[in-house]
Design a protein around this nucleic acid. Sequence first.
DNA 1: TTGAAAAACGACACTAGTGTCGTTATAATG
DNA 2: CATTATAACGACACTAGTGTCGTTTTTCAA
Lengths: 206, 206
Amino acid sequence: MSPKVSKEHLKQRRAKILEAARAVFIEHGYERATMKHVMDAAGVSRGGLYQYFSNKEELYEAILEERLSSEYANIQNVLNMSEGSYWKLLLKSIFGDDMEPNDEMDEMAPSNLEFFITGRLDERRRKYGQERYQLGIKVYQDVIRAGQESGEFSSKYSSDILARSIVAFIDGLALEYAILPNEDVKLKEQSNMFIEYLRMALGVEG
Amino acid sequence: MSPKVSKEHLKQRRAKILEAARAVFIEHGYERATMKHVMDAAGVSRGGLYQYFSNKEELYEAILEERLSSEYANIQNVLNMSEGSYWKLLLKSIFGDDMEPNDEMDEMAPSNLEFFITGRLDERRRKYGQERYQLGIKVYQDVIRAGQESGEFSSKYSSDILARSIVAFIDGLALEYAILPNEDVKLKEQSNMFIEYLRMALGVEG
DNA sequence: TTGAAAAACGACACTAGTGTCGTTATAATG
DNA sequence: CATTATAACGACACTAGTGTCGTTTTTCAA
């Protein structure tokens, strides 16, 4: 009637697995990665791994959830310390704190695309993907709507369609990043152009 | 020393397999589809199928090539019977002959995304994907560059970046189409907004 | 009509990966 | 230090799918 190892230990081991899994998914992508890869990378036995995650799907979603919560905390932060400018807020929510596009891309982005696309025909996973996608839209939509209500943004276009365009743009970039050799990808330039587009659509001064 | 079946027969059989395979890929996606699915759908035995395509990759690429050539013929057509307006030409090359966005999407689009993304880590397939992607960019780039040189389009943005944006936009839509339930997808509205964006970027009058 | 080339067939052997389960090692507790 | 719950292990059985290959069938030409 007593736990045989500390909660702390369990947590650490889990974290170790997740970290190793992340590296594996970056290297092999979602579909090609195997539980064996993860075992080896984490230095854990088959049985040991399955104690924590009972299949690859679960493992991947655990990684996604981790990111999600930290990202969310970040966005919440941004939303709260509002600087009074929704435009700045929007840029932050798209490009992060620097508010500037750079030439880096989340290394997991290609695997994420892979995960969601290959999962589209499985009922449970499709549902999960839809929720995440809608959530992604919602983040931007909330900022845009607030900006429109405050009068800072033009209401010419619906916040929904605008938010979708942002998501589509980001996904399109991720795809390009996944397929083209790195030196051929021009994230920064494309992002800058997209910003001008948003400026136009939202009626924000240059 | 004589062929035992007519060329015509071989062609038809091949076509039959391709057609069945197309349906299979639409239903199951690329990764989950199996050669068995195709055999059943085409009413052909295992050995029979492998006589024509020695693996799934080859089969899928054959489908892609077919489309590619017919699409290319179409674009060539459009390019030749030039109506003097590069803007119209651009719209045609994006949305097809109607020049109008509609709510339909190529049913193969999700599988195509899947094929290219999951193939990104295999050397041969990555190369293939890159070529196709670059080709996709080139189509739009050619029209834009021509329009810019003729003075019809503004040269504010490089034709390369603009063309990439178009591809990214289309891919983003395809992804949305793949993931969201159909009734939630708003292809038309998003496309219309995108057109306005292009108008701005190219300096084309409404 | 017959013979031969090859198209079509389907059983088979093989592989890569999964998840389970009985066993062993370990760490907290009394 | 002994006890014991359970974390960790790794061999194993199982599965889904692939590509091959010897056999059968078909088609065309002589």
